[in-house]
Amino acid sequence: MTLPLKGIRIADFTVHNAGPFCTQLLSQLGAEVVKVESAMRLDAFRKPHPVYGRMGPATFDQVASNKLSVRINLKKAEGAALAKRLVAVSDVAAESFRPGVMDRLGLSFAALQAVRRDLVMLSVSSSGQTGPDSHFAGYAPLFGAWGGLGELTGYEDGPPVEMRHVMDHTVGMNAAVAVMAALHRRRVTGEGGHVDVAAREVAASLVGEALLLAAAGGEPRRAGNDHPRMAPHGVYPALGEDRWISIAVEDDAQWQALCAVTGIAPDARFASEADRHAHRRELDGLVSAWTATLPAEDAARWLQAAGVAAHASWTTPEIAADPHLRARGAVVEVTEPDGKRRAAVGVPMRLSKGEDIGIVRGTPALGEHEDYVYGELLGMGRAERNALEEAEVIY
């Protein structure tokens, strides 16, 4: 058996993060993804990202790995015609522009379906392709804010918390599932279709219980690290600068185990689950006094041995170096265009049969795979390619 999407080709017009993360996931499942860019309009994430401590394009490296790269200047009519030739030999066309952009380029679903009848097209946008808010542009913080996720995230006495890349990635994962569903439908019926993913709707889907509470007359609130029932439940300071440990106690047995490990004395205030939750602030102080004197890893090991859920709150360097994640392929090594090796996030799933899911190539250089795509797939000769390059269509 091979990878589940082996034989599927995707013409990838997506930009930034949410759409590219979707197609990158699909590439790890076996799809051949051809990323379309132009020197006239590079993907914004191909630029350096000093905010993340790297002058190299860290985000682009993650979401562009595994992909092939070709140049097409979509602002020229000949570029749109070339894009259609690529779509004609593809199963999926994916885009993440503001609604209306693909139409203006001459690359609407109807126009692309004319060259590939059973095409599956994916459109990822802020608010969807239809409706009164469809014209709004948006990035990850807006998705979480508009979908209600930001309002419910943060401490009770603090402001809503901005949701960034986790929102993009969640949108991308939802889009990947939707594309696979559309491909399955096509296999059964022979029909393609247009998959419309609205990022704000993805965010709203993550706060379903709060929406139900609000519909029933309740008032959802930010709860920080609180749990509606469990206590202790939170992130507690550990020994060292900015070191923390997460602890969650589910029942009386785990509470007694925690007391045995920490030395917290029996107290009527904490006798039952309801008592502990009612006095959770005092309880947090007692737990913090114990954790603050110990390395997070030691405290977590002792609590885990006693049957209490606990773990150090890891930094990204700790995650990248973790031997367990390395052994499972959740963190892999890729090669950058300059030849340097670095860690990358692998796909978080395993299949019992078939090839291993994962990253097989690093970030593509701009236009790196045009000999294969234009030569082998589209059958273009050197003279035609040269003419398109001179006309800045392939540029």
Rank of each mutant, 00 (worst) to 15 (best):
V101A: 14
D43T: 10
V124R: 05
Q129F: 08
Y52E: 07
L105R: 06
L112D: 01
P50M: 09
L68W: 09
L68K: 08
A31N: 02
L25K: 01
S127M: 10
G30D: 08
A114S: 14
T130G: 06
P57S: 03
D43H: 10
A93G: 04
D91Y: 03
N17A: 15
Q24K: 08
L119I: 11
L42V: 07
D91K: 03
F97V: 05
K67G: 04
G100T: 11
M102Y: 02
G56R: 10
R117P: 09
L42G: 07
Q62H: 14
A39I: 15
Q113T: 13
F60L: 07
Q62K: 11
F97G: 04
A77V: 12
P57M: 03
P48K: 13
V101K: 08
P99M: 10
A81F: 04
N73E: 14
K76P: 04
A31F: 01
T14C: 12
Y52N: 13
D133T: 15
P50C: 07
Y52V: 12
G79L: 04
L105W: 03
V124A: 05
Q62A: 15
S65C: 15
F45Q: 15
T23I: 02
T130Y: 13
V87N: 05
A110D: 15
D43L: 10
G100V: 10
T59Y: 13
T130N: 12
F60Q: 00
S69Q: 09
S126N: 14
S90Q: 02
T59S: 13
L112P: 05
S108I: 11
K84S: 08
V33S: 02
R54G: 00
A80I: 00
P132F: 10
S126Q: 12
V115S: 06
V70C: 03
A77M: 04
